[in-house]
Design a protein around this nucleic acid. Structure first.
Lengths: 370, 370
DNA sequence: CTGTTAGCGCATTCAG
DNA sequence: CTGAATGCGCTAACAG
């Protein structure tokens, strides 16, 4: 055994004679090469890297220099195998076939996650999935195959089977969005009920009484919360929201466009439309304009998210700013805290939102006798 | 040894008595557990999983069933260590501090990469970096620490030191964008020179003679190619482009806004502005409108990319469709081909673009004597 | 303070 | 067709 060890050492170590770095075309430099050059044992090298205090400054310096000279990088895979952690966060991007592009909200949230992860020495393992079933399956696979130590879920739906599996198998995870009926789940969210209430209040204050809602996927908690915020607030004002004034579907501008055309064709069209997303709102505005309506004179429109595009629409969109990036950051922080053995101060984080009043809301048109 | 084996089997295997899966709170089920249950050796289990042909159907079935019953998942880390491949693609998202949000182009490209990766059994390791130096450093780290088998670079700049390092260290990688002066580098791109030429031709045809360009980061090859496409085409038409009509900077709408204000304040303002990106174009439009100009009557504007927002602007933006997603897919395909030992048919892939004429371009205003 | 010994969980020789 | 032995590169007891 020692013989073969020597032999391979000779094979690999040639570069050290020239003083240049050892970039063998195959076979990278390992901890043993460093140990040999520094005249210590591999464990000492390991300790030197880990900053282990029970090691002399002289040795540490020698090891560090050897590492430097050889251009050594510890093999993360080998390290993971023994430490049993990958220092990696799993995240799956769910992309239903009907959503043509990466939604800005998720892109921002992802950046938030990524930056906090990076700051704490974690990497991000990202997958995409076409269907929800695949999302769930892939997320589980990442975790059970030990490629990720924990997961952040980018949305939550009511009675989510993935959440159940994760919980049962005791995998650390954090949800971006509220998870109802499961107090033990860590999540990070904005108060969507409250956000929707703000929007409705704003419209009521302007004098609107005839509202309609255009929303996203009905199975998502975010959709449900926003819808409830709208209906509850209307109810408190003694107003209702007829079912034909509620148009859920998906988060595409096409859906906003389509449903608005329908809503405006009704005998008694709404004077204001709450779109549960800026992208939807863009579709709403477009449909309204094509029917010859001027915004906000003939129709008020509100969105959600404050995507970068919101202020670039004409007129600039009144919307609710959702701190996507901060949500992602908070989620990553929660998860990493747990993975690193710290207990997060709270299980549920709620970030504040802000109504951004711009150019798409105004008083309702004076209505003639119908 | 067999004794201790039995003991641990008993400790862990209790669930098998009940017929339910074995999810010990600590210590997952390994290949040895499966082997024991199937009454074979670990190597046989390994072969059964790998679809090794020299194994009887009966044994394979027995192994598969044991895997099923135990809910076994092979540990990807352990596998990586021995196979010396992680089946992971590295990708680093570069986010300069001044770019406020994830650019839609990159989001789409990323999705393309992710979906092809996923289809081929690869995962994606994603990092973010604030500076270019960090991007380079992190990319190298991923590769040398063996966490990724190859990398896809999301942009290329002229004389890119990262490209040089990657090449020297023989790491497989593919660049999204053209890499000048290095024929050996694999890259995937659209013809930006040609795209810009199309735009200029369109404007010339409409009668414009006074163009200006608002562009992104000057160190990026994409910026350089588009700029050259503009100037060359103008030159062929016997026209020039004065330096004060060229405003490079970054890919934010604020930059488009700012530079347009400046351009329009000049003694002899342009009648058409070529923005090298839809986001820039949005800023251009906004600035123009604030100065009381109507588009396209007083000023024509063209963008690049055909982001989803392009058609939602008012008026809908004339732009060049860049197949971001397809570029990402092609890049992933190139890289994976190489990693899997197939030789990609070509080293450089060029995807076609398409001019999408919408509402922001028209004939120039009749100019009075100055 | 440091070296030796043992694995982490798997794939892969090499023998049957 | 299958099992036993070996090692991927590293960390973590356990001994000095």
């Amino acid at each position: 055994m020692s013989t073969s060890g020597r032999a391979s050492a000779r094979r690999r170590g040639q570069a050290s004679a020239t003083g240049s770095r050892a970039f063998a075309s195959e076979g990278r430099v390992t901890i043993r090469d460093v140990a040999r050059l520094a005249q210590v044992s591999p464990s000492t090298v390991s300790r030197a890297m880990a900053g282990n205090p029970r090691i002399s400054e002289a040795t540490r310096a020698r090891v560090l220099e050897a590492m430097e000279r050889l251009g050594y990088r510890p093999n993360a895979i080998a390290r993971s195998l023994v430490t049993r952690t990958s220092r990696t966060l799993g995240i799956v991007l769910y992309r239903p076939a009907d959503e043509a592009f990466a939604h800005p909200f998720f892109a921002e949230a992802l950046r938030g996650v990524a930056s906090v992860a990076q700051a704490n020495g974690y990497s991000l393992l990202v997958t995409t999935a076409e269907t929800y079933e695949m999302e769930a399956q892939q997320c589980l696979a990442m975790l059970e195959e030990r490629r990720a130590d924990g997961a952040v879920l980018l949305a939550s739906r009511s009675s989510d089977p993935l959440v159940a599996s994760l919980l049962q198998r005791q995998h650390p995870f954090v949800v971006l969005g509220r998870v109802p009926d499961r107090r033990s789940v860590y999540w990070v969210n904005n108060d969507n009920f409250q956000a929707a209430a703000m929007v409705v209040l704003h419209l009521l204050q302007l004098g609107h009484r005839e509202l309609a809602v255009v929303g996203g996927r009905p199975e998502l908690v975010v959709t449900q919360d926003r819808l409830e915020g709208v209906t509850s607030t209307l109810q408190e004002a003694g107003l209702g929201l007829a079912p034909e004034r509620i148009a859920l579907g998906d988060f595409t501008w096409e859906h906003g466009y389509r449903e608005t055309s329908r809503l405006l064709a009704q005998g008694r069209p709404p004077t204001a439309i709450v779109a549960m997303d800026d992208v939807l709102a863009a579709g709403v505005i477009r449909a309204a304009r094509e029917r010859g309506l001027e915004i906000p004179r003939d129709l008020s429109v509100v969105g959600f998210n404050d995507d970068p595009m919101a202020q670039l629409l004409t007129p600039p969109l009144t919307t609710v700013r959702i701190p996507a990036r901060e949500l992602g950051e908070a989620a990553a922080r929660q998860l990493i805290d747990r993975l690193d053995g710290r207990i997060p101060p709270v299980r549920h984080v709620v970030l504040p939102v802000e109504l951004v009043v711009r150019g798409t809301t105004g008083p309702p048109p004076a209505r003639g006798v119908s």
